[in-house]
Design a protein around this nucleic acid. Sequence first.
RNA 1: GGUGACGUGGCAGAGCGGUUAUGCGUGAGCCUGCAAAGCUUAUCUAAAGGGGUUCGACUCCCUUCGUCACCUCCA
Length: 466
Amino acid sequence: MTGLVIHDTLSNSRKQLLIDEKIRIYLCGVTVYDDAHIGHARTIVIFDTLRRFLEANGNDVDLIQNFTDVDDKIIKKASDTATSTDSVSKKYIENYFEEFDALNIKRAVEYPKATEHIPDMISLISDLITKKIAYTAKNGVYFSVSKFSEYGKLSKKNIEELESGSRIEVDESKNNPLDFALWKFSDSSPVWDSPWGSGRPGWHIECSAMSIKYLGENFDIHGGGRDLIFPHHENEIAQSESFTGKPFAKIWMHAGMITINGEKMSKSLGNVKTVRHVLENWGPNIIRLFSLSGHYSKPIDYTEELLKENLVKWRQLETCYYELRLADGIGGLDSISSDILNSKQKFDAAIENDFNTPLALTEFFNMIKIINGLAAEEKITKDITGMAMPILEYMLDVLGLKLIKATDDEIKSVFELIGKREECRKNKQFEEADTIRDKISDMGIHLIDHKEKTLWMKKEEIKADT
RNA sequence: GGUGACGUGGCAGAGCGGUUAUGCGUGAGCCUGCAAAGCUUAUCUAAAGGGGUUCGACUCCCUUCGUCACCUCCA
């Protein structure tokens, strides 16, 4: 495969993802100075799902995601909390992995850190200075925007308008207010030596240096949140293309923001929901479903209603999985196999069509409805499980969803208790039967009484508080 | 002010120049000893307003209004 088509921000058109032996993706990660929030989670879930889809279909994916671990905000946090910048970034990187592992995000191939790539940045900057595209001024080394004629091509801005509308405090030492820092002079920690004086790198240069280092000069997809289009990605293009003389990323893919009451989640508005908080209250699966419930390019409003809707769907999915898994009926496949194959085909087609996950989820849950409908009639057979389960598991894998599995001990005791309960029910000892049911329920296991038999499923505990 | 995007039924949310998207919610029912879960069925026939183009527009063009994002660190 594949026929994957993605909307490219730069050309403002849909582009086919061309596949050589490897698909190389660079995702702009987080600045590690504070807790990650649900907005970070959505962007990362989107790219994780894209990567999972490609891999599930037999492609080799090189996904690189950086950590920005040198930044003014980290410095501020360190001084506010009387620690070092290292310990600040270390702490939040640890938190990051804890939370995003819990979210079932596949680890990137590499998580390069800015602080570990200073020499790469310095050589890139040196080259730009040699080419007279960058210059040294009082406060640092700057990229001269006027030397890159295509500046603004990503964000569709033109330089004159930017200059007139600029709200940046004008730094008189710069040639042009739009010029951005490649290297900032400083004597206080964190600080590195450079040919131009001690200091630290500007923000944008790390992504140019690290993406080129790990993925080459021209790679497949460069991703991040929409809010990075300007200035971050615009500047990356300017630096990288000036450096290599080649087009940078082939496809620029940008994820929409999470909003609250229609407004972007941000610190200044005080409407931030941390990943940790949402994980505690809704768990990883609901977050993933929620994150994919709208098209990746559009905003999603964080509301209890939407979360609850996804919780309802999650419960249907749990039922479906256990109905399939515990099926022991004998019989044929009926027409269901073509329905299920159809769902799989539509699911893939939706994702290939500019990563249309809301449509893919519709197909996914449509398939679940078909299976659950059959289950309600007690018509699930081993043969049906044999054909449907691999497809269900494929979709679960692509979506990064993970069902809670019961331990062997739990399964053993559940079987015993179900047997006992059946006895009680036969003897019309309903109080005892209900007591046993409560006991099973305390184990997080839910019983499904069919006509002929009782099924069980281990349900994920979800508090469902926003 | 500039740039970009968007405005679909109570809510969420796709596609498409001419066929019911779909889901949630809500009503009724089935199953059950009772529940839960699940299922079945019904329900809303929606496209911000105004102009065009067209045999025909939710889908294309123009315009008014509205919303959001970016222009400053930001996923």
